[in-house]
Design a protein around this nucleic acid. Structure first.
Length: 260
DNA sequence: CTGGGGAAGGGGCCC
DNA sequence: TGGGCCCCTTCCCCA
C-alpha cells in the first residue's frame, strides 16, 4: 500500500482535508494544464497518468547533489548544552524557521491577517496562502482584513490574491510530477525526487557518528537526536524528554500527563 | 507503550 | 514571478 496522501488518514485539523476536493465536482480551468484528477472508484493512483509532466527516472538530471555524505551543520556536538525549546541547533546553521523577534527593518510588507512581515511582495504573497480561507470561513473574516482575492480555484473554494499563488495551489490538484516507476503523483518536483529515492535506494545523507545513511535530510536530523544524550522535546508535566516532537505528542496523548 | 526509521506535505527564503 | 531548496512537521509502520 503506497503511502499516498490520497489514502492517508488525518486526525488533526492541521493536515489538508483532501476529501473535500474529492467530494466536489472537479472543474479544472482550461487555462491550466493537467485538467484530469484521479477519481475515486474508476482510477487508482497507481494507474493514473494524466497528461502531465512525466518524469522519466532515466532522463532526470542527476540527483540533487553528488552522492556523498552531507554534513548538516558541521560536526555534531553531542555534548552541547540542551537546546531547551528554542532550537539553537538550527540557529547555529544560520537559519531558523521563524524570525526571533521584532520585525527586521527591511521587512516592509505586512500581512493583513497576522503580524508577520516580509521583505518582498512575493514572500508576503506566498505567506498569505496560509490564510486562504475556506468558502464558509470567508464571511467570518472582517472585510478589511481580506486581501481582495481575485484568482479563484475552480476545484475548491480557495481564492488567491495573485496568479502565482493560484498556480502553486493548482499544483496540489493536478499533481503534475508523476513517478514513471509507480505512477504516484506529486505537486512539486523535489517531492518527486525524494520519492524516486525510495525506488533507487539512494541515501545521500549519512550520519557522521554511525554511518547510517538516509534518503531525506530531515530524517537524518531526527536520527541525530538519537545520538544526543539530551533530548530536545520535554514534557511540561513530568519533564521527561523525547527525541522528537511526535514522540512527545504520543506521550501526552497516552495520558501520562492528563493535566497538560 | 515506546523509540526510531521511512515517507511525504507545507511554509518560507533565496535566486 | 516562479522554481529550487531547506526546514519543520506529521503520519505510518515496525521492532
Amino acid at each position: 500500500m503506497p503511502r499516498s496522501f490520497l489514502v492517508k488518514k488525518y486526525f488533526t485539523n492541521k493536515r489538508p482535508n483532501y476529501s473535500e476536493l474529492e467530494s466536489q465536482n472537479a472543474v479544472i480551468p482550461e487555462c491550466y494544464p493537467l485538467a484530469e484528477l484521479p477519481m475515486r472508484g474508476n482510477s487508482s493512483v497507481l494507474t493514473y497518468f494524466p497528461t502531465a509532466l512525466l518524469f522519466n527516472m532515466d532522463a532526470l538530471p542527476a540527483p540533487l547533489s553528488p552522492v556523498s555524505p552531507v554534513s548538516l551543520t558541521g560536526p555534531l556536538d553531542l555534548s552541547s548544552s540542551p537546546s531547551s525549546s528554542s532550537g539553537e541547533d538550527e540557529e547555529e546553521a544560520g537559519r531558523t524557521s521563524d524570525p526571533p523577534s521584532p520585525v527586521p527593518p527591511h521587512h516592509i510588507y505586512h500581512c493583513l491577517h497576522c503580524s508577520k512581515t516580509y521583505s518582498s511582495p512575493s514572500g508576503l504573497s506566498r505567506h498569505q496562502l496560509t490564510h486562504c480561507p475556506r468558502g464558509s470561513e470567508i464571511s467570518s473574516i472582517p472585510s478589511e482584513a481580506l486581501p481582495r482575492p481575485a484568482f479563484h480555484c475552480k476545484n475548491c473554494p480557495k481564492e488567491y490574491t495573485s496568479l502565482g499563488a493560484l498556480k502553486m495551489h493548482i499544483r496540489s490538484h493536478t499533481l503534475p510530477c508523476v513517478c514513471t516507476t509507480c505512477g504516484k503523483a506529486f505537486s512539486r518536483p523535489w517531492l518527486l525526487r525524494g520519492h524516486i529515492r525510495t525506488h533507487t535506494g539512494e541515501r545521500p545523507f549519512s550520519c557522521q557518528h554511525c554511518n547510517r545513511a538516509f534518503a531525506d535530510r530531515s530524517n537524518l536530523r531526527a536520527h541525530m537526536q538519537t545520538h544526543s544524550e539530551v533530548k530536545k522535546y520535554q514534557c511540561g508535566s513530568c519533564s521527561r524528554t523525547f527525541s522528537r516532537m511526535s514522540l512527545l505528542h504520543k506521550h501526552t496523548a497516552s495520558g501520562c500527563c492528563p493535566a497538560s
